[in-house]
Each structure stands twice: as structure tokens, then as C-alpha cells.
Amino acid sequence: MKAADFAYRRPADLAGALAILSAEEGDIAPLAGGQSLMPMMNFRIAQPTMLLDLADVAELRGVTAGPDGLRIGAMTRYVQLAADPLVTQGAPLIGLALPHIAHAAIRNRGTIGGSVALADPAAEMPALLLAMAARIELVSLSGRRVVAADDFFLGLYETARAPDELVAAIHIPADASRRRVGFYELARRHGDYAMAGVALTAGGATGQPLASPRIAFFGLSDRAVRATGAEAALKDAQPAGDTLGAAVDSLSALPINGDLHAPPDVKLKLAGVVLRRALAGM
């Protein structure tokens, strides 16, 4: 199929982009890498009235490191994340997960901000941000605000971003560079969306008990979800034996939806497996 018709704007800067967002009527879709939006448009599942191409908005690009951590511009592509030592050192969880995200040609164009704004429940990036306690910087004509990842992903393709806002950047806290990281996903084929996946971070040295673990699953629910029960079970503990068993058992409290290839009970079982395997890799 071919995309339904739309209007196209390619503002030169952020002010221009925000002006369009606030002034224009209709369903305006910001266009970042387009790797998720374009398929939906090609099949006419998405029919925005206007595409707002952010390609020229310099303010949305670039990665900077500061005392509070990293600020990753929303238009940073996956391929740039993988190649940037600021990212791989400042957010090693992202480095760990990137090879599992889609395929090379998709990573060449797909952006971190696009993935976050879309909030696909099966995508890795929202879960990575939850596990790192990242924050999402939103910008509109009325100003900037920063929303914790925990408060950003609200449901199926639903986020805290208001229609007149853009995702400007992702903030990764400074301690993300020091925390232990784990990642595991079960995808039928390399690069597919996972049947179940988990991302986690924890404090403490390797081999030591997990300090303040943060555990986020994807591919299970209508959004990436924190597993607070498992976090509580594993807090300040070694991920083994009964503790690990309790953490896995706690996953039954997660809001798990089945999909085409796995009913909820299978997803729950796989969630336990990916948690065990991710922890074993830490």
C-alpha cells in the first residue's frame, strides 16, 4: 500500500517546529527516523494530516555529558548511540541492548527520541530508560519540562507527551555509568520484537548483593513495565535460590497481555526465564 496523503513541513529549527505544532490543526506526526511511523503510514494504519520532519532541527541532536549524567538529543540515531563512547560508557545498558534492536539498516535511521515518543510496548528502549531511571525532556512553546520515565509511558502507544510538545532529549543519570546492567530478550528471529525481554540495573559490585535494583520488562504488557515486586524481592540480596524464586514468582502480578504468538501464561513463564538469564549475566 501507499501512504495516504499528508502535508509536509520541515522547519529549520526548534522554534519553527514548535510553532507549527502549536498553531496547526489536525493530527500532526513528528517525523524522526520514521522506522516505525513509516510502516504504519504505508499500510494506512496511521494517517496523520501533517508530517513534521525534524531532520533540520539542530537543537534535537547531539550527546553531551555533564555532572548529572548524559543528555542524549532525541534525534540521535541508534547507530550513533552505538558508536558514541559517551553513550556506551555513560549508559552501558544501551550498549548492551543495541545489537538486539532491529537490523542494521533500521538502526541507521531509527532514533532514540522516536522510539520513546512512539512507546511501542514491544520495543526495547522504553524498558531501558525505565531500568536506568532516565528522564524525558519535553519542549513546547510554553517551555520545557522533564518527566521521569516512570511517569512517561502511560499505555499502548500512549505517553505523557502533549500534542504540542516534542521529545527533546533523554537524560541518563550519572550513576547509570557505574551501575551493573543486565539485558535479555527472547525473540523468535534476530532483530524481531521480543516475546519477552527485560532490562535491569543495580548498584553494588559484581558478585555483591543487588543494591536498589531497577527491573523493566518489555513485550509483556501494553507498555514497558517496572517489576517492582521483583525489585523488592531482590533488593540488597544475591539473585539466587529462594530470593530469585520469589522475584520470579512476583512477576505474576504484572499486567501481562497475550499476543499472536504467545498467550499470557507463556509470556509469564518467559518473563521469569529472561529475568533469571539477565541476572545470571550480571
Binding site: M38, P39, V79
Partner: peptide, 19 residues
């Protein structure tokens, strides 16, 4: 439809000509 855009492989179906 994979082809090379500015030195990187790209899906030609997931990019608009105008882009």
C-alpha cells in the same frame, strides 16, 4: 529495498523522497 543513503544502508520504503 535496502540501498545506500549518505554512506549508510537505508530501507527505501521507510524514507520519503522528500527526506
Amino acid at each position: 529495498c535496502t540501498l545506500d543513503v549518505d554512506g549508510a544502508t537505508t530501507r527505501g520504503c521507510l524514507m520519503l523522497a522528500v527526506q
